[in-house]
Design a binder for these strands. Structure first.
Lengths: 242, 242
DNA sequence: TAGTGGTCTAGACCACCCC
DNA sequence: GGGTGGTCTAGACCACTAC
């Protein structure tokens, strides 16, 4: 008889969003354990099974990582397994060695039409632009141009980038407390222009894979827009379809 | 004290593989309902919760589709929602209308080096090669060359292809009882050769997206290898990274 | 009203990890 | 031995669909 709420949400989803809030607020940091399922069940006054289902979904979303016998951990880009989560480039023959990131340039600018739309900020807001090279086995394969909202990355300079040995997202997470959750990539084929061809050491006009990526943090907030040009002479972009 | 089995498999996974077997054997066909969770629980002598967990995983794998109040159904490529499961091409501005498939050629041949390796068959085994165009809004965007193991597709001819109005995989499923489960794509950028440029109506040398796909049916058995050349002037390949 | 999947609970036991 | 996540069960109730 009672009016059902038109936006009915099961208990475990409410628990999920409470845990999400705690993550967002930094109550538990990347790499750390979160409380056990029993503790969370007590804290939220629900059964362990309900907490379990919430955590199940978050583990499927790559937000948490379960380890039997040890506990549940906040996912981190410092984890070496996270390195290839957003990088789908694979050498055509052989081994999947981690690439070397070579920051080449880093400067400040004002957001133009496209950057403001992609990053969800106002026209003219401060942004940071990074140019960097990705090398596989000492050979240049990708040139990236990365656009970041200036307010989110205070104090980001070329020096900071160059002195960091891990991945870019690992730097963002450690230094700016910003965790990348998901991304969307748009791929096209383009011809190498002069400066790109020099950077990647390919003839001008060579077909390259253009990969535009928008990356989101908690709450589906876009915090990075980048365009990469991939030389696919000895590598390909691998995609699993399920 | 007892020796633990080194290949321990929980009950719900055993149930899962039993249900998988039933699917493979054709006991329930694509689009049909499978028995209710209660019935399956009785059949396998386990609790409903265990069956439920097995079905949960299979739904996540896109093998089954749950519909509250109605039942659980075998996933089918005849379902219009399945159309874009393997096709990641999206128009740059606007609407996602279903493309039109235009089969151009279909002939028999013997498997060469590459085809035999990709399809897991012997060198010289009979294969079928299909060439077809994909049109979006009446404009040619993709040219596909598709390699199929001959034994799996008896009686496949250009006529059969041309008289079928649905998707290719929907034809395979309906006519040959073959369900495509997952696929792996390798993307590169290449330059359009003469014949491709004519088919896609682009200048020779235009950068194109080369998409090589291997598609698998039950039991991870490869049953299709195709190479598509995508014109990315007005479309892009969209990929979600989670 | 009856049947389906979806949620929630409580409790028992198993597998794994660390002390 | 004691803690963690992982499995399995049984039962109650809710939400949705069909008739």
């Amino acid at each position: 008889m009672a009016q059902e709420s038109p936006t009915f949400s099961p208990l475990y989803r409410q628990i999920k969003s409470l845990i999400l809030q705690a993550l967002e607020s930094g109550e538990w940091r990347p790499g750390q354990v979160i409380p056990s399922e029993q503790e969370l069940a007590a804290r939220f006054s629900v059964s362990q099974g309900t907490v379990r289902k919430a955590i199940d979904e978050m583990a499927a979303d790559n937000l948490l990582i379960r380890k039997q016998g040890k506990g549940t951990f906040v996912a981190s880009h410092n984890d070496p397994r996270a390195l290839f989560r957003f990088l789908r480039l694979v050498p055509m023959d052989g081994d999947l060695a981690p690439p070397q990131s070579v920051p080449m340039d880093c400067w400040r600018a004002k957001a133009g039409q496209e950057a403001s739309r992609m990053l969800g900020i106002e026209l003219g807001d401060p942004i940071i632009i990074v140019r960097r090279l990705l090398k596989f086995a000492a050979k240049p394969v990708v040139i990236d141009e990365i656009y970041l909202p200036g307010e989110v990355f205070p104090g980001l300079t070329l020096e900071v980038l160059q002195s960091w040995s891990g991945s870019l997202y690992s730097l963002f997470e450690t230094r700016f407390g910003l965790r990348m959750i998901r991304a969307q990539e748009r791929l096209r084929a383009v011809a190498a222009d002069r400066s790109t061809s020099e950077a990647l050491k390919v003839p001008e006009g060579t077909p390259l894979l253009s990969v535009e990526r928008v990356t989101y943090t908690y709450g589906d907030r876009p915090v990075e827009w980048r365009r990469g040009l991939y030389s696919t002479a000895e590598h390909f972009y691998l995609n699993e379809l399920n």
